[in-house]
Design a binder for these strands. Structure first.
Lengths: 149, 149
DNA sequence: ACAACTATTTAGCATAGCTAAGGTAATAAA
DNA sequence: TTTATTACCTTAGCTATGCTAAATAGTTGT
């Protein structure tokens, strides 16, 4: 098709918006809010993480995560642990409950999307499969998933 | 590569999250909040739209849009127009200012993404270009862009 | 006319973002 | 070692944006 970089970027951007809007409808099921799901995803897939680092990953300010972490602690989604060598640092670790809720929610998202993929003509599935690694390379330097809106 | 539907869905999902997280960093520049940008995008690209229809497109409840529309009116981003045949209906139409702010913001997003695309090896760009139309077909039935988080 | 339905708004509440400022721990410098 | 600075987190208070329930206004059907 010999698309320009601008053209490719434009179409990928639109597709990403539609894709996430489509899967987001499953999130209510989990009983967790979008910000909790997103933060939990970073913690589950990336392992224990400090308040500041999680704030950076989520593109919000530390006080926002500080409060979120407190609430998610009350709700039994994460455990708060003090770093033993630097006691200023609070590390957040997913509990079994938090991990399970997140994984179930993610499964629902992926399943809904997979259903759409399955409805595509085979040659389209082929193209997407071929493009998947290229898409991953687009953001190699980037941080982790984070369930995303 | 012979990926399963589940595998393809999973990788597309991750890629979409990374992609939008990447471009979202440009949005502060516009001086508009995420909800305003998203609503404005639906209005600019889809044309005048009622409160209820916009609420459906944005996946929020009508009162949320009602208030947003009022504020965006004050801010000179949209005009509120009563439908002449059914005077219950309020149609929102982008002002020149609203349209310009939105298009500039979108340009910044696309440009940032295009830069990443340009850094890929040529065969990856080729694959993405090939996949773009397949991605569009994934959500044919779906509603409009809407700037998306 | 009037009952029922539809579109929007108002009111009141919860969540989640921000900045500013405070507390405590670690580190650098005198 | 004492002092000053820096780093990490929290608290307090504000704004924006989501929700539900209920009110208002316009339309439609009997």
């Amino acid at each position: 098709m010999n698309d320009t970089e601008r053209g490719i970027a434009d179409r990928l951007h639109s597709a990403a918006i539609h894709l996430l809007r489509h899967v987001r409808t499953e999130d209510a099921e989990s009983g967790l809010t979008a910000s909790r799901l997103s933060a939990l995803s970073v913690i589950v897939f990336g392992g224990p993480i400090s308040i500041s680092d999680l704030a950076a990953a989520e593109q919000v300010r530390p006080p926002t995560i500080s409060r979120l972490a407190k609430e998610m602690g009350w709700e039994g989604l994460v455990r708060r642990e003090r770093d033993s060598t630097d006691r200023r640092i609070v590390r957040l670790r997913a509990t079994a409950k938090g991990r399970q809720l997140l994984l179930e929610g993610r499964e629902r998202r992926i399943a809904k999307l997979a259903q759409r993929v399955a409805e595509l003509p085979p040659e389209d599935r082929e193209r997407l499969s071929d493009a998947a690694s290229a898409l991953e390379r687009l953001f190699l330097a980037a941080d982790h998933d984070g369930a995303g809106p």
